[in-house]
Design a protein around this nucleic acid. Structure first.
Lengths: 231, 231
DNA sequence: TGCTATTTTTGACAAACGTCAAGATTTTTA
DNA sequence: TAAAAATCTTGACGTTTGTCAAAAATAGCA
């Protein structure tokens, strides 16, 4: 057969597909940025295009639909969201180190990525009304639940304990805590970060016996997060 | 003075104000219904008017603005939301009775008022973007927190224990749990209600020592809720 | 009953929306 | 380099949106 020609065709096709996917990702990123700034209800296709380097018509070249675009956004969001805490999990060598790292990572997320996370809660609310979003949202929720479960399992390992709470409940508690903190944070409450940290510790104390005693307050050296000049 | 005339004027004025407030409440109810069906992003003023017995123009006679209307809605929502669990709280005479009543009330709310509660989460997400909603949403959240706190305080009383978790954390946990259950419920997960009940019990078991032992499974007589033919 | 004030309807407006198609532009292929 | 295919821009379409004002309808009062 003309295998060489076929290979050539295959290669060019793949390059084309890659290019299309790259552009789709680029536009999805612009959409994600717009959504995180304005929220789902106020985001239009023209606004999204203005946050990219293209005109509004190109969106219908790469996406069949507005729902298609948003769905693609949600999937991209997931990719950049899930792996965030895995580094902390694998590098920790003691219960206290992992607990501190987890608490610090939550606080850092609240401080640095508040707008992205408000988008997540917005989209999750949309899924309560729009069935087209439900599958993707449930999938992301599941992967976040898995992430929490990995951390809790590792904590249990390090503490030499056995987990008795189901993954869904553990996730629900931390998710609820974070959402409350986000609400207060975006409303200008200066104590939101501190309360999130304290709440995290309190939940951990009810999940693990190893955490009944609060850790020493002035022991920043144990925390793996970057040091910051001020809160 | 012409006190009789003044009284007359005062009375008619009050009647007028009452009538206006009544109409405002009527329209707010129609808006609330529309919002709970369509969600914030898809709700228009004309759609709201169609769910009432008036034309769309009347909305601007009673409300200055769309935001004004939605805000009024949120306030009405609060009124019908907060007092729901208080009856259970006051009538219970033992820890187990209150715990069962609380669990059953949560499950009943999920079953019966899922659409109203998805609206609440939707509006709370809007508050993350629209500062005009923030104050009202925070206020409602606070009153829900207070409601949970009343129940937990009463449970502590009945168990002869002292609460060591702050109100905000207790609310955050139950809120997170309910939200997860709502998401699954509206996605058609038949186990959502059962999981909500189990999760509630598990949280209570981590809050109160009196609840370490699970209550007997086949003991429906203890539950104060109406009996239903099937789940 | 007639007059006034209040309430409601109707119709219109400018703007913004999602969508699409035709044409210009760029890239790829031969 | 010329033809072909792809990418992108532009402008337009039919709706729908929030808002408003004028007119119609109703209610309250003399």
């Amino acid at each position: 057969m003309a295998s060489a020609a076929m290979e050539q065709i295959e290669r060019t096709q793949r390059r084309r597909v890659d290019k299309v996917n790259e552009r789709r990702a680029e536009l999805a990123a612009a959409a994600l940025q717009t959504l995180s700034e304005l929220g789902y209800a106020r985001t239009s296709l023209r606004e999204i295009a203005q946050n990219s380097e293209f005109s509004h018509g190109v969106l219908h070249y790469y996406f069949s639909d507005k729902v298609d675009l948003i769905t693609c956004c949600v999937r991209h969001y997931k990719a950049q969201c899930v792996t965030r805490y895995d580094q902390v999990t694998t590098s920790a060598t003691s219960y206290e180190e992992l607990a501190s790292g987890f608490t610090a990572a939550l606080a850092e997320t609240l401080r640095q990525e508040a707008t992205m996370h408000r988008l997540w809660y917005d989209l999750r609310s949309q899924a309560l009304f729009e069935p087209a979003f439900q599958n993707d949202v449930l999938e992301i929720d599941k992967s976040l639940e898995d992430m929490i479960w990995r951390i809790m399992s590792r904590l249990a390992d390090l503490a030499g304990e056995t987990l008795t709470l189901p993954p869904s409940l553990l996730y629900a508690m931390f998710d609820g805590l974070f959402q409350q903190a986000l609400l207060k944070f975006l409303a200008g409450d200066a104590n939101a970060v501190t309360e999130l940290q304290a709440g995290t510790r309190l939940i951990l104390a009810r999940v693990f016996k190893a955490a009944t005693a609060e850790p020493a307050k002035a022991k920043p050296a144990a925390v793996g997060a970057k040091r910051r000049t001020a809160r």
